[in-house]
Amino acid sequence: MTNTQSKSDMQTGYAAKRKLANIVVYIILSVMVVIWIFPIIWLILQSLRGEKGISTKYLIPHQITFDNYVTLFTDERFPFGQWFVNTLLVAIFSCIISTLFILMISYAFSRLRFKSRKTFLNFGLILGMFPGFMSMAATYNIMEVFGLKQSLVALVIVYSAGAGLGYQVAKGFFDTIPRSLDEAAKIDGATRNQIFWQIILPLSKPIIVYTALTTFIGPWADYIFVSYFMKDNSEKYTVAYGLYKMLENQTINDYFTVFCAGAVVIAIPITILFVVMQRFYVAGVTGGAVKG
């Protein structure tokens, strides 16, 4: 066995090993995708199921129908259409207000230096560590004082007022913008107000998108506040709580497939939004460590 031969043997051996490794990875990935996608497929299949009941002994429904989707939007007991509109309204308004608040707060803490800055920062940090819904009973009473009891406005306020505490990510982003930009503008006679609107914000597209995305998605998934705030007022529910209600003991048999249809209806737009915007999301979480 000559030297050259053994070298080529080694090469083919190496290539074969690599090929094997790749095949193993492909197999693992495929198995994982099946596991991950299976519940989603199950959800879609259930939403098309014609038979009533919680579940069936078979995977693929015997009767495939779109009736559940029709029921979803026509049922009187569970006015899903109304809930969808409610959620959309709350999501849009709380998205706008929270994004503005977060940008304002994080800009102030990141770029401006003032006397009580440290105190405020620590204060915000401390407040953020109380469990969010610990004080919801009290918040409910306060809403009552303002005459906002069981209203969608109350939800917008709760989501936006709390959002102010989520300034860290945006602050981290602002910190990475060179301060020399501000200095230059200041020399040109710009006020801090102008710097904020005309220089910093246009540079902050990723973080604006990230903040808007997370604050928009929030209301679609919140269960706790809605359940406590809206109590019996079913026409003011949002989708998350409304759909949850369908799964209560009394109704789950008749409405489980309708629930699945509702879940599909809200999952589609959010999934598309998320998939399209994912790079902003990543940029936001890693605080700019990744260049989108």
Binding site: G53, I54, S55, K57, N249, I252, N253
Partner: peptide, 14 residues
């Protein structure tokens, strides 16, 4: 976690 009403309906139906 699943309640008895649902279980009973499901049980008889299946």
């Amino acid at each position: 976690s699943s309640g008895d009403n649902a279980t009973v309906q499901q049980g008889f139906a299946s």
